[in-house]
Nucleic acid binder design. Sequence first.
DNA 1: GAGTGGTCTAGACCACTAC
DNA 2: TAGTGGTCTAGACCACTCC
Lengths: 257, 257
Amino acid sequence: MNMQSSPGLGLRSATAKTSTYLRVANELAEEIRDLPAGHQLPSENELATRCGVSRLTARAAMQELERRFVVTRVRGRGSFVARRLEILTRVGSSPSWSEAVRQAGGQPSLRVLNVAEVDVSDEVCRILRLDGQSTAFQVDRLCYVDGLIAEVTRTWFPKGLVPRLDDLLGRGGSQTVLLESFGFAPRKTWVRTDLVPVPGEVARLLELEGQPAVLHTASIVEDAETGTPLLTGESWMRPDVVRTTVEVGVETKGEGH
Amino acid sequence: MNMQSSPGLGLRSATAKTSTYLRVANELAEEIRDLPAGHQLPSENELATRCGVSRLTARAAMQELERRFVVTRVRGRGSFVARRLEILTRVGSSPSWSEAVRQAGGQPSLRVLNVAEVDVSDEVCRILRLDGQSTAFQVDRLCYVDGLIAEVTRTWFPKGLVPRLDDLLGRGGSQTVLLESFGFAPRKTWVRTDLVPVPGEVARLLELEGQPAVLHTASIVEDAETGTPLLTGESWMRPDVVRTTVEVGVETKGEGH
DNA sequence: GAGTGGTCTAGACCACTAC
DNA sequence: TAGTGGTCTAGACCACTCC
């Protein structure tokens, strides 16, 4: 045990309650409080030497700060001050992820993993009002914020919405903008959010070790004018990259009656 | 390195990709898949011996399962199959936490930490329509599921709602039931949810080490008939104890137009 | 090749629970 | 008192990034 966490005899019950790694974590958190996002932090070895603890303890402190979304770590590169983009989700708002990221001050980018016509579940059939048909266009995408993987989405579109839809979807770009260019006014009409351990295949896409908890969201988007269902789908979001706030109810907070 | 993670030469690139602790975690997860909640699991030492790994590796595996909400661990007692109660939050629904827990099959209990008349922020004044007054009753509570700490809440009530309100609130029991007994029909009209690192003081109440991410919720409750604001407040919930699903929009999922 | 974080080992002491 | 999980050490090898 190092000196800093070993107070004089007789004081133990009063002071030495918190563990070393939490003390180191709190010290470091205080130190980096005003540093800009992306600023490089001391390495595990540096921190260990500086605080007179083992590397594992320094590491535990860094991991604690990672859990607090204060620090981001990259193997081979180092540890950095984290940035967590704040995104607000509301029913009735535009479903554009790109726009939400841009509004929050981030640089969005998208990568289409896959476009295919697939058989869909009865539930998706009902939501998209596919009466008769049993297939739809399925699009899997990776969403980035400032080059960091933020979200994986799987979306289903009705086939007859516009001509050559699958081709257009495969080109990437905002799905919302695409729909708007055909005269639709896409709006979220239903949202469901959940904190769940990320499924294995999604974990790989999000480049997560193990299966930590991520924010899972299912949603339905319809045309504001006609109520035509435009798409439905679900997504898994890295909570360390994006802070998603879900807001429900009148905007005026209790004054709308 | 133990035998199980050291495949024959030449096979390394094909197989030995995942780390030992994840392999142990996945094995154990498979093993306990059908065990009932509360069932005791092998200790770290047992698991280490059985899998031929060090205790730290066995421990890392257990912690991974804890992150997946599959395992609960108690110092001095052991590791157990976790139970994560599913609770649905919707605008317009009854705000009773006790009722939600009971519906999900859990045993709710409450502990009032504190009742006091306090100065409140301008925002709370506006929400509760306190025009003129600047104080309200503040109630801090701990909410339990089957004896496990699940949630910390801080709630503000307007003073004039019913006579001797502070006294009644201090006795514990469901706040919703109390309001209903006075003829009110409390309904959530506004909810905002967020995943944030738990503040230090709340962490102590929730008996969490460090400051891991918890579900933070702010809400407003009004009378269904008159729109009278009945309470507002915020809460912090342990995601390992409760799986909170927030649902927004028409129940029929796109058929309500 | 030097430095980073990720994993793993063997061994130790501690606080806590249960008997 | 025995067993549990929580913390800590010293040392090691690895995969990865950057130069």
